[in-house]
Simulated assay, not measured.
Amino acid sequence: MPRSSMTAIGIWRKIIFYFVLITIWELAYRLGVGYLKAWQPDGFPSPIKIMRVFLTLIQDHTLGSAVLTSVIRLAFGFGISLVLGFFLALILLRYKSLQENLSPLLLGLQALPNVTWVPMAIFWFGLGESTILFVVVIGSTFAITLAVESGIKNVKSIYLKAAQTMGSKGLKTYRNVVFPAALPEIIGGLKQGWAFAWRGLIAGEMLTQVNGLGEILVAGRERADINQIIAIMVVIIILGLTVNKLVFERLEANIRYRWGLD
């Protein structure tokens, strides 16, 4: 069967699966609210009501503005994290004493939930953009640092010996051998850092109530509108999956193709 036909069949299977899932969800809502009286209408989300909220947010430009603002914040903060993460990783690899002492600390800091940084950020920067940026950066930098450090440190020694045998030295070895060999693990760290950055962004926007997706979540909570809350959660999931599909999966596919893994 041609690859295009298999792809089309896979897409239709997913569409049918989610259609059935949403239908069951709506039936559960109607059964629980209308017949069994198991919960209140505002205590259980309805897919149809979620879609209505979603369309309303689009029509009044609230959603578009929030998505654009949040994505710009996220891209800017994640860009800073990339620079800091790679810089810290190279410093740790250069100085073994720092690596031995700081790596466990960075691992512990990475384990901290992003939201724990928000009170400190508010204390330092107040309620504003700087607080959100700080939380995004601090939440993703350590994951990137540890991934780059681990990826480069775990490059097989046989690659280095082969490069030295062929006369490769210094930066040339890093550019042509070490960094390409470490890329799969580095990409995994970037994906993890991106996920942490997303969480930090939403946490910062929720607590500072600055314009963005997090602020719309808080507005839904204040109005006791569970459908608005779920609608924004769905938007966040879709954005995350889109970035993963368009950026990270393509990077991984290119790496696998270049190294002959496909």
Rank of each mutant, 00 (worst) to 15 (best):
A195M: 13
W194F: 09
K191A: 05
G139Y: 07
E129Q: 15
W198N: 05
P180F: 00
V135L: 11
E129T: 15
F179G: 01
G188I: 08
G189N: 04
N154W: 09
I144R: 05
F125Y: 10
A181Y: 00
P180K: 02
A143Q: 09
V177G: 00
G188Q: 10
L183R: 01
G200I: 05
L160A: 09
Q164V: 10
L146G: 02
V136F: 06
V137D: 02
M166L: 15
F125S: 08
F196E: 12
K161I: 11
I158Y: 10
S157T: 13
G128L: 03
S140A: 14
F134A: 08
I144D: 00
R199N: 10
T165D: 14
N154S: 15
F142K: 05
Y159P: 05
R175E: 12
G139P: 05
L160Y: 07
V136G: 03
L183T: 00
A163V: 05
V135Y: 08
A147R: 03
R199T: 09
F123V: 15
G189P: 03
L183E: 01
N176L: 15
F123H: 15
E149F: 10
K156C: 10
V135C: 10
G151I: 00
I144M: 05
R199V: 07
Y174M: 09
A197V: 11
I187K: 03
L183C: 04
G128N: 07
S150H: 10
T141D: 01
G126I: 05
L146E: 01
V177S: 02
N176E: 14
V178L: 00
N176Q: 14
S168R: 13
K191C: 06
T131N: 08
A147V: 06
A197Y: 08
A197K: 08
V136A: 07
G189H: 03
V178E: 01
G139I: 08
L171D: 15
I187Y: 04
T141Y: 02
K161V: 12
K172E: 15
G167N: 05
G151V: 03
K156W: 09
V137F: 07
V148W: 02
A181P: 01
I138F: 06
A147T: 07
A143W: 07
V148E: 00
G188V: 11
A195Y: 13
V137I: 13
P180S: 01
G126E: 06
V148P: 01
G170T: 10
V135H: 07
Q164N: 14
E149P: 07
L127E: 12
K156R: 14
K172V: 15
N176F: 14
S140K: 11
F179Y: 04
A195H: 12
L160Q: 08
A143R: 08
V148S: 00
G193I: 01
W194I: 03
P180D: 02
Q164D: 12
L171K: 15
K191R: 11
F123P: 12
A195S: 15
Y174H: 09
T131G: 08
T145W: 09
